[in-house]
Design a binder for these strands. Structure first.
Lengths: 222, 222
DNA sequence: GAGCAATGTAGACAGCGTCAAGTTAGCTTG
DNA sequence: CAAGCTAACTTGACGCTGTCTACATTGCTC
């Protein structure tokens, strides 16, 4: 029947690559459409049926690619972590860690904070899922999501440890605790902004810098 | 007047006081049952129908006391703020601390943080509604909820200002920014704990103390 | 006692997640 | 090349949801 033969590049004859063929690339399109819907109308407004309609398939077609609505959301979150990775990695761009050159000063911390908040606010549809209670409280995380999430946490801790190491005077703070508290601050600020409790988005920069000041000072405790 | 003086405190001839009589005290019972249901089964599991069933009325009876599900949740959140008030008020319980002395030291900050986190974790069903995106993002807050919420924010800022004033060396930090950042930290930690992202609840005390250390140090910046 | 407003009920509707059963289409294998 | 297998997709149905409408009850006020 429907020979909507625009047929993307067919010949997806690859190996691990498991694309659907009927629709073309349904799984990918579902993930993108889901993110778009959440962004535009909020997470609560996302329904499997609307989603299916949006990409032009029947209500239950998505269930051949995701066992659950939950599983779909997990996959969206995973995509989010993939985009997030660059933010928390110690040296996001420029190839190497450059062992000796990497001096961390307050400016570097400021930059990091701004990038974190910027990601959270501008990718709220992902951030909500990645670090929101909806998925985590359910205890039904996809194995692959858990994997990528824990990897992110670990990278963050490494990042913080890097701060301490590259500070001239060795810090006395427990790195794990310091990482937890700083992350709490960043996460809390992100949540308050995303959730619309902090409305004055013009103050974001000032708040970020105040946080940087606090982080930096704490880092230098002897 | 009504001689069914058993309960009810009768004489509800006043104006603002609108108790139901048919059921007895439906509004109150709905609020309590809602909090209980959310606590036991999660916010997502709360439905108006289950709620009505739980208190023994028909599905639509609650709509005579709350225009919406949203309005009911707002009312629950309001109750939460009422319980919360004691936590952030500068002088929670009179007498304990010297009256006008009121010197704020690191121990006081530690205590405050612990109380905040303790409230959030042990009253998650309220905390979620009070500071969660579900209500705030909707832009449909009850007027009375807005009122009590903003009052709480204001009290928090006052509290922080008090910290600064009672520190021996006057702090150089902008009180508003400092309040925003410290609240971000507390809120972030609460969220991470409530949402099950920080699982090790044994570490709460250590994290709280690390935060206190950081707040305290920042307070003393000259 | 009459009337009225507050409070309760039952019925109905559209929308939700998702299970079960049927249909289509591309790949594999004889 | 035909047969068959299976992944991808569709339609139908069920029980749940929030909430609108219309109706019944109740107790207070005149």
């Amino acid at each position: 029947m429907s020979n909507s033969d625009i047929e993307n590049s067919g010949s997806s004859h690859g190996l691990g690559d498991h694309k659907p063929y009927h629709h073309g690339d349904l799984r990918r399109q579902l993930l993108d459409a889901a993110a778009k819907l959440i962004r535009e109308e909020g997470e609560a407004a996302l329904s499997m049926r609307k989603l299916a309609l949006a990409v032009g398939v029947s209500r239950t077609a998505p269930y051949h690619h995701f066992s659950d609505k939950q599983a779909l959301l997990c996959a969206v979150a995973e995509e989010g972590f993939r985009r997030f990775r660059g933010i928390v990695s110690v040296r996001p761009e420029s190839g190497e860690i450059g062992d000796q050159a990497a001096v961390v000063d307050e400016a570097a911390i400021r930059l990091f904070i701004r990038r974190y908040i910027d990601f959270a606010v501008n990718n709220a549809e992902y951030y909500d899922l990645m670090f929101g209670g909806h998925l985590w409280k359910s205890q039904q995380l996809t194995a692959s999501l858990k994997e990528v999430a824990y990897a992110s946490f670990k990278v963050y801790i490494e990042h913080i440890r890097h701060w301490q190491k590259s500070t001239l005077l060795e810090s006395a703070v427990d790195p794990l605790r310091y990482a937890q508290v700083t992350w709490s601050t960043l996460h809390g600020m992100s949540r308050l902004l995303i959730d619309g409790i902090y409305l004055d988005s013009a103050a974001v920069a000032a708040m970020s810098d105040t946080a940087a000041d606090m982080f930096w000072r704490q880092l230098q405790s002897t």
